[in-house]
Amino acid sequence: MGMQLRTSCCHIHQNSSLIPPSLRSISPAISSLINTHFVRNKALVLERRLGFNQTDGRSIISSKGRRRRAEHGVVASSSNVAAPAPFWDDWKPGKRPAAPSLSDVLWPSAGAFAAMAILGKLDQVLAPKGISMTIAPLGAVSAVLLATPSSPAARKYNMFMAQIGCAAIGVLAFSMFGPGWLARSIALAASIAFMIYTGATHPPAASLPILFIDGAKLHHLNFWFALFPSATGCFLLCLIQEMVLYLKNNFKF
């Protein structure tokens, strides 16, 4: 394309019929100057229309051409754009920077054992009152706090906000719709909406409404269920988490 442009410009320069007759009647020097200026202007117009650079002759897309391509949805491919991951990548184990040490495995496991042992002892004390501290959601909370302490679900705000809010939603759904699939469905949907709206995403809390609706031994707690046993148990688990983190950071092996 660059050779064709230069050939066209030379043809214009050689063909004096393209210059107006009034300009050809002037002296040869001035006529030559006007001829050169005319050809250069003509070449500049052609270069701008075709999108060529006048300085080095390389063909580059002008800003107008890029704008036209963007308007018509034509986007130049780039090697920096990552290809979409295959569907089955989510089914593969994630990459870890290094294998965990023995202490990184032992201390969280020991903390989970201590948590369930303490909750079990509290159950023996509270058994005459018909109250149990060992509930399934606290097992999931232990896994979040001890195995992934830096995850968003392990943040104290997320945990307590979601635990209290979802437990209260479960009590409210049971009082309005009674036991059954409708109360469970509405309570779970409302709990997820509550966590998204407040920005307090804590997955173990989503099981609290279903636990209350299906657990007849918890119905007498009414709205106290929002604080006990879930929120109280989470406070105990937070203390155990601090002990585990201290042991992991100071006693490595």
Rank of each mutant, 00 (worst) to 15 (best):
C234Q: 04
H37C: 15
T201V: 15
S79C: 04
S78R: 10
S109E: 07
L172P: 01
L227G: 13
A187D: 06
T198P: 03
L5A: 11
L23Y: 02
E47C: 10
S17E: 07
I60S: 12
W107R: 03
W181F: 10
A193E: 02
S101D: 10
G120I: 07
I240G: 01
P152I: 12
A167P: 07
S62F: 05
L46D: 12
A43V: 05
D56P: 06
A99M: 14
Q14P: 02
R184K: 12
T232P: 00
S32V: 04
A183L: 08
A112N: 06
G73R: 00
V141G: 08
N15W: 14
I131A: 10
A98G: 06
S25L: 15
V244S: 04
A114Q: 02
H202N: 09
G111C: 06
S62R: 07
I196A: 09
L18H: 07
L138G: 04
T148L: 14
L236V: 12
F52K: 03
A83Y: 06
L247Q: 05
L126K: 00
L44I: 11
I169E: 02
S101G: 15
N41G: 13
I19R: 00
G130M: 04
V81H: 08
N80Y: 11
L146E: 07
G180C: 10
S185E: 07
I169G: 03
S62C: 08
T198G: 09
I135M: 09
L237E: 00
L46N: 05
L5F: 02
P128A: 04
M161F: 07
S8F: 13
S207G: 14
M195D: 04
I164W: 02
I196N: 01
N158G: 01
P93E: 05
A76H: 11
N53M: 08
L227C: 12
V244C: 06
A70P: 03
Y246I: 11
C9R: 06
L211G: 08
Y157V: 11
A190V: 09
P20E: 06
G233N: 03
A140Q: 00
N250L: 14
I61A: 14
T232M: 08
A83E: 14
G199R: 03
F87G: 01
A147I: 14
S142I: 11
F253P: 01
C166M: 07
F235P: 00
C238A: 14
A85I: 14
K92F: 10
F212Q: 04
M195Q: 02
V45C: 09
R48Q: 09
G130T: 08
L146R: 00
I19T: 04
L102E: 07
D104G: 08
L208D: 05
A154C: 04
S230F: 11
P97W: 05
M195C: 08
S185P: 00
S16E: 13
P204G: 05
A205F: 04
G165N: 05
R184W: 09
A76L: 15
V39P: 03
A189S: 10
D104A: 15
N222S: 12
L221C: 10
G57K: 01
L188S: 12
L122D: 01
L245Q: 11
G199K: 01
R68D: 10
D89P: 00
S101R: 11
G180M: 05
N249L: 15
A190I: 03
G57I: 09
Q4D: 10
Q163V: 15
S103P: 02
H202V: 12
P93W: 01
